Amino acid sequence: MQAAVKTIGIGAGADAEKVIGSACRVSVPCDIVCYSRPGTAKVPEDHKNIRVSESTSPETALVSDLMTGAIDAAVRGTLPAKATLQALKTAAGVDHLERIALLETADGKKFLFAPVGIDEGWTVADKLALIRKGRLVARRFGLPEKVGVLSGGRLGDVGRHARVDRSMADAELVARLGDAVHCEILIEDAVESCGLIIAPDGISGNLVFRTLTFLGAGRAHGAPVVNIGKIFVDTSRASPDYTNALLLAASLLE
């Protein structure tokens, strides 16, 4: 018996045309549902696998359909981060979200990176949880399972500032407990051999993510949430398109 076609939902809030265009361009063996406010999105008639679901609260509708199984995976798209992620936390019954981004350098080197949210990855326990779950994601994508942990300086910088010292001490502990490597501040070396790289904290992680993708000619393929038991790929509303995120969601469904 032929397997049922999977369905991916994607948020089409602000700039719905960008989301619809991405859905029309991407080639995935899935149906795609675009969640938007009434009257803001229209799908070309020649794309039969794409439809629009209208709601006065598209972020709530997207999350609800993901949790009930009406769709098999979700991409945030251009829905607002605060409302969408809060709806996801509430529906999933968690007090925080753990996201691991799939990034690509300008010369095509792919790696996983976390934390990428400013409120994520601040403790040793947080980083160890990201390492455990990130290794599983790396395995699925055929990336090295070696993990590099970053800190605020080189080991020779000890004593220059208390916060730098603390970041290096934390990185040493995370590396030891997580069977990882402390790569100091040398992210350019870590990316050469590590499939997963852990930033010192959520602020520096978010800055690395934004610098690479918006200034450094790199690419962001999306950031799967790894602690909710459902496939949800987070994205930035500043992304030029969402084909990579839809492809990532489709690959997680395989």
Rank of each mutant, 00 (worst) to 15 (best):
M67K: 09
A91E: 12
D65M: 00
L103P: 02
R140A: 14
I100C: 10
K82S: 14
R140V: 06
G108E: 02
K82E: 13
D46P: 00
E145F: 05
K127R: 11
H96S: 15
G121I: 01
A125I: 09
V116M: 08
L150G: 04
A114I: 03
G108F: 10
L143W: 07
L155H: 11
V52D: 00
V149A: 01
R51N: 02
I118D: 06
L97D: 04
G148P: 05
P115C: 07
A106Y: 13
P58I: 03
S151P: 00
L112C: 10
A83Y: 07
D65W: 00
L143T: 09
G148M: 03
E145Y: 04
L136M: 13
K146S: 14
L143K: 08
V52N: 02
N49K: 13
F113T: 04
N49W: 05
L102D: 08
A129D: 12
T56E: 14
L102I: 11
E98M: 14
N49P: 07
G148V: 02
V94T: 13
L79P: 04
A91M: 11
L136D: 15
R135Q: 14
V63C: 04
Q86S: 12
P115H: 10
L97A: 07
K146T: 14
T84A: 09
L62A: 03
V116R: 01
G117C: 14
I118H: 03
P115G: 10
T90V: 12
V149I: 12
T60Y: 09
K82Y: 14
D72I: 04
P58E: 01
L136E: 15
A73Y: 05
V116C: 13
E98Q: 14
R135I: 11
E104T: 10
I71N: 05
G142Q: 08
R135S: 04
K146Q: 15
E98R: 14
E145W: 08
G134R: 07
A92T: 08
T84I: 06
T123Q: 06
V63W: 00
K133I: 01
T105I: 09
E98G: 02
E59A: 12
I118V: 15
R139D: 15
L85A: 00
K110T: 11
R135K: 15
L79S: 04
I71V: 11
R76H: 01
K133L: 13
S57V: 11
A92L: 09
A74V: 06
T105H: 01
L62T: 01
L66T: 04
L103G: 05
I71G: 05
L150T: 09
E120L: 05
R139L: 13
T90E: 15
S55Y: 08
L97M: 08
T90G: 03
L66I: 06
R132G: 06
T60Q: 13
K127M: 03
A101N: 10
A74T: 07
A138F: 11
V75W: 09
S53K: 12
D95L: 06
R76P: 04
L136T: 15
V124Y: 00
A61H: 02
T60N: 12
K127C: 05
A91S: 15
T68D: 12
L143R: 09
T123E: 09
D119N: 14
T60D: 14
V149G: 02
A73I: 13
A106E: 13
R139E: 15
L143G: 09
